[in-house]
Design a binder for these strands. Structure first.
Lengths: 252, 252
DNA sequence: CGAATCCTTGAACACCTTCAACAGGGGTGG
DNA sequence: CCACCCCTGTTGAAGGTGTTCAAGGATTCG
């Protein structure tokens, strides 16, 4: 599959961190120049992973926290019996790897769904640097707190919502997240398959497929494989039955 | 309801922090005396809440992170329409409130299920103190990372597990958590109702009740209202189908 | 003792899954 | 370039699991 997702940033690697739209999304430390310098040092490392490649695998030691710059990453939990549980999708501007801080070892695997560029934030440097980095560490606390919040929101979805509500919430979330990154909120290419969406939402692949058809019949959207065009954003959000709180978006 | 849970620690409030069994559970900073002194200062505050009282309500500013000393606390998310979603049960030695760090405001409410004693950890002091506190802050990061991990495990449970597996996992978790605190792993009093368990596990109250009956018919346990006696711990863990990893216990 | 709450059990029903078959694209090799 | 194959996605039918509705029993507390 081609990297069909348009890239809002130059492929030039010489970009300054402060110009990276990711900067304010993942580590908004404010106007302090010292922190900015520090962050520049910390976030300098880049890595490119191709579709199907792993950013990290379960069991590997935690070396970096990652921030997605472009592309998309799927994290999966390896269950006994070898089956894999999708635990999250990470779009540009979103972080992953914080769940490994506790054990110092990655419990999840992170798989690139398309050609993906990430920032590597060496965790040891975040941890060891003195109080210069305190505001960064505070930021890290906030980010992790946010993730806890989002995991809880996702749990709400998984507990009591119908299949249609789950998929609507998922699509509404994608829409908001793409839009936040400067893309259209009404038309985008998903990088994940029906099976992966189903796995993530706790639904069978067939159910997801049927729901896409049903939404299409209802005139809410047009879905041609991975290309999604939302005609009635209002209806989609209504079907999702989520609080209007934008924080929800990251959760799903 | 009486506080039927036996208390493994003296009710005397003069207990030194380092003698508190909670100490190593929630903030194991190691042998450093400086940190120990600091923690003693930080965790000195206690609070007693009675059954039905709130530790905090949604919307209140984040002042403390809490650690349960005795009793039990249920945290709930307030959904639109006024319905409440149970998002977690917190037993002695477990923390709550970290999800509020991001917004600085509690999104959940925390309700005492029985007479409960908690430690109040002023969040500002955790945040503001210099590098003296760095190891504590690192600890906080670990704790939050652990919670993220556990939330993910819970999601696995909610996505693809049957009702019986969910309840078995919940009971197995309670068993492990009680045992960790020095209580019997085979016999204990739950502080939560069938309805609350169902809400938490994404099941109807009736389903939970039926499952208790079914487990009882199968000779796995005896349940007399909130008093649980597990006869076949092996079978319960088998029914739960969880990795033997103890980390699971906190998750559910 | 009465009331309210919690728990239990039964029956019908709805939703989603599972099994099955097929369609359609995309990539590969001839 | 075309044919083929494999993978992904779609659709149908049957069946199971859990919910909902309903009623009754048990326990606690005023």
């Amino acid at each position: 599959m081609l990297d069909t997702q348009p890239s809002p940033e130059s492929q030039d690697d010489g970009i300054a961190c402060k110009d990276c739209s990711l900067f304010q999304l993942c580590l908004p430390v404010g106007p302090g120049e010292a922190d900015l310098e520090l962050l520049k040092r910390v976030t300098k490392r880049r890595r490119l992973v191709r579709r199907g490649e792993y950013l990290y695998r379960p069991g590997e030691p935690l070396v970096f926290i990652y921030a997605v710059k472009s592309g998309s990453v799927m994290s999966t939990i390896l269950l006994e019996g070898g089956s894999r549980q999708v635990s999250g999708f990470h779009l540009p501007g979103e972080m992953l790897g914080t769940d490994a801080i506790n054990a110092g070892v990655h419990g999840c695997g992170a798989l690139a769904l398309e050609t993906t560029s990430v920032c590597e934030l060496p965790f040891s440097s975040l941890e060891d640097l003195g109080d210069v980095v305190s505001s960064v560490q505070r930021q890290l606390l906030r980010i992790m707190s946010k993730q806890i919040l989002h995991d809880q929101m996702l749990q709400v979805l998984l507990r009591k919502r119908s299949a249609a509500e789950r998929l609507a919430a998922f699509l509404a979330s994608l829409s908001v997240r793409f839009n936040r990154r400067g893309f259209s909120s009404q038309e985008f290419n998903m990088s994940m398959s029906r099976e992966q969406i189903g796995n993530y939402l706790g639904l069978a692949e067939e159910t997801v497929s049927r729901l896409f058809s049903r939404f299409q019949e209802g005139g809410v959207l047009t879905a041609k494989r991975k290309h999604i065009r939302i005609h009635d954003l209002e209806a989609l959000h209504a079907a999702a039955r989520l609080p209007k709180d934008l924080e929800w978006a990251n959760a799903i």
